[in-house]
Each structure stands twice: as C-alpha cells, then as structure tokens.
Amino acid sequence: MKNHLNLCMMATSLTRVYACHLDKTPSRRHAVKGRNHFAFSDVRRLIAQDALDKDFQLVCPLPRKPIENSVAVAFMRLAA
C-alpha cells in the first residue's frame, strides 16, 4: 500500500512539473462554468498525446547506458 501511494505521488509530482513548464494553459476536456483552471486529467491527456507522438524519442531519447543519478531513478527507488 505504501509503495502504491509513493508511485501515485511520484506520478502526480511529475505531472505537476510538466504542467508548470507548459507555455499555455491546457484546454478543459470537461468545462465547468465559472472555472478556468485545468484539471489533472487535462495534463495527463497532453502527456499521453506527446508520448504517442512519432517524434517523442527526440524529446525523450532512450538512454544508451543506465543513468544512476537521475531523478526518475530516485523516484522509482522510493516507490519500490
């Protein structure tokens, strides 16, 4: 249960970091009157679209050799 919580918190943190680096606010998939901020699912949808893009490996290339000191490895160790 603790590992699951750690993995969920890591995913939420990475999604939030991604959202902070966006040039513009994502459009709402399910717009609510009176709310102009985006939801977690809106950013998650953008990440999924980017990951399925044919040029995704230009942005996030596959590592040639293991990177031991990366932030992602540290997060995964916390979740494991």
Rank of each mutant, 00 (worst) to 15 (best):
A31H: 13
A51M: 13
P61C: 03
F56S: 00
V32W: 01
R16V: 08
F38T: 09
A80C: 07
K65D: 12
A48K: 03
Y18V: 03
L78K: 09
V73H: 06
L14E: 15
Q57A: 11
Y18I: 05
A74E: 01
K2P: 13
S70L: 01
P63M: 01
P63S: 07
K2M: 11
H30F: 13
R28F: 02
C60G: 00
L58P: 00
A51I: 08
L78R: 07
M9K: 11
T12C: 06
S27M: 13
S70I: 01
D23M: 06
I67D: 10
R77P: 04
D42I: 02
F56V: 02
N36M: 03
N6A: 15
P63A: 05
V32S: 13
V43Q: 03
A39D: 15
H21G: 09
A11K: 08
M10N: 04
V59W: 07
L78M: 12
D50G: 04
K24Y: 11
R28C: 12
R35S: 07
L5E: 13
K33L: 15
A72S: 15
D42T: 07
I67V: 10
S41L: 13
S13N: 06
T12V: 04
D50N: 04
F40P: 00
M76L: 09
R64P: 00
I67M: 06
A74N: 06
D50K: 07
V17W: 07
N6Y: 12
R77S: 15
P63G: 03
L62Q: 08
Q57P: 00
C20M: 13
L52T: 04
V73E: 10
Q57I: 05
K54C: 01
M1C: 11
G34P: 04
P61W: 03
R64I: 05
Y18C: 11
D42H: 02
R64E: 06
P61L: 08
T15G: 14
L7D: 04
V71L: 14
V59E: 07
A79C: 08
P66A: 09
C20V: 03
R45H: 10
V32L: 12
M10A: 15
A79E: 02
R44Q: 14
A74V: 02
T25E: 03
K24F: 14
H4L: 12
L5N: 11
P66M: 01
H37N: 15
Y18P: 05
F56I: 04
C20K: 14
P61E: 09
L14R: 00
K54V: 02
D55K: 04
V71H: 13
R28E: 07
L52G: 01
L5D: 11
N69V: 02
A74L: 12
C60P: 02
